[in-house]
């Protein structure tokens, strides 16, 4: 019998290099995004504005623009993008299907239903909406799982059930919004399409803080998840309790999705695409969590920049990600079909 239950994968250079490159690209995009807007700044100016307050006591105007106006939004984009990507990676590993991400299966829409209900019932307090999002997300996850369960959960059935549940929840969401008083409905509908238009640190920090607080849970689920990747039988022979582990990973994924949805609304595509792109870049067999997180941060920030600049008026980032995500899904289906031939 083997003495070790878990053989550490040899650290090859490619994942490390790719990871570093992704981190660098994200950092570069952050600097670029900080310089973009009605008051354009060059990358050098952005960097000096970032360190400005450290050097001098009286911050100049560009420091205010960068640190107080733009950095909150960009922080949100990076952290939320990473969180969504990790949630997507967890789900895709769990369902063993590149399409098994929370946005396709409908958890994001369910979380949003929770947010709307919480807003309509309790008003828009942070605790209420976050709780609503988590409950909504978990409830939807459970519903989709139960409806798709039939002697085990098969990937494609899960997805079609998810599409159906999403369509119904989407209708329910609009129903509640139309029924609700205009004022409440407006505040809930603002982020209906997924938007990062948070203005100040006081809006961003609680959300980012809660997401970061979920990090230990993610780290705790990495090891059992890798075991599950080997197949249920192997995992259970390695001493992993398969169903509880699956439920825990599911819970963590829903939690991350719900937290982001509570603040930013349903943002599609990042959870779907980031893990797959990361996997292709790193050329790994499983889905690498760190790379996924970095890719997700890069994607959401990039999408948000497009959303703000591409058209005459800024549009919600969720619309950009829906368009990109749908196109990516088409690509996925085509390449999937090619492989099967």
């Amino acid at each position: 019998m083997l003495t070790t239950h878990h053989t550490p994968t040899p650290i090859t250079s490619r994942p490390v290099v790719v990871g570093a490159a992704l981190a660098a690209a994200t950092a570069a995009l952050v600097v670029l995004a900080l310089g973009m807007g009605d008051y354009p700044l060059s990358p050098a100016e952005v960097l000096s504005a970032l360190v400005g307050p450290l050097v001098s006591d009286s911050p100049d105007f560009s420091s205010t623009v960068v640190l107080e106006w733009r950095l909150p939004r960009i922080t949100a984009a990076v952290v939320f993008g990473a969180a969504l990507a990790v949630a997507g990676a967890l789900f895709q590993t769990l369902t063993r299907n590149p399409l098994g991400s929370p946005d396709i299966i409908g958890f994001s829409t369910g979380a949003y239903t929770g947010v709307i209900l919480a807003t309509v019932v309790f008003g828009g307090a942070f605790v209420g909406t976050t709780g609503g999002a988590i409950l909504g997300g978990l409830g939807t996850a459970l519903l989709v799982y139960l409806l798709a369960y039939r002697k085990g959960v098969q990937g494609y059935r899960l997805i079609i059930v998810g599409i159906g549940v999403t369509a119904a929840l989407h209708a329910v969401n609009s129903w509640i919004l139309i029924r609700a008083e205009t004022e409440v409905a407006m505040s809930a509908a603002i982020w209906g399409a997924g938007s990062l238009s948070l203005t100040s640190w006081s809006d961003v920090l609680p959300a980012v803080g809660v997401v970061l607080a979920a990090l230990p849970l993610v780290l705790a689920s990495v090891r059992p998840m890798r075991q599950l990747e080997l197949g249920d039988d192997v995992a259970s022979s390695h001493g992993v309790k398969v169903e509880p582990t699956r439920l825990m990973i599911l819970g963590v994924g829903v939690l991350l999705t719900a937290l982001v949805t509570a603040t930013a609304g349903p943002i599609a595509f990042v959870a779907l695409a980031a893990p797959q792109i990361a996997r292709r870049l790193a050329r790994s067999t499983g889905i690498p969590l760190t790379h996924s997180a970095l890719t997700g941060a890069f994607l959401l920030l990039g999408a948000d920049m497009v959303a703000q600049q591409a058209l005459a008026q800024p549009i919600p980032v969720g619309m950009v990600t829906v368009i990109l995500g749908g196109a990516y899904l088409c690509f996925l289906l085509v390449s999937d079909g090619r492989r099967e031939r």
Binding site: I323, G326, L329, C330
Partner: peptide, 16 residues
């Protein structure tokens, strides 16, 4: 799935 993806893209563009 292809239909849903296509619909999402198209209605997203209209929405934008």
């Amino acid at each position: 799935l292809a239909g849903v993806a296509l619909s999402a893209v198209l209605s997203g563009i209209i929405g934008a």
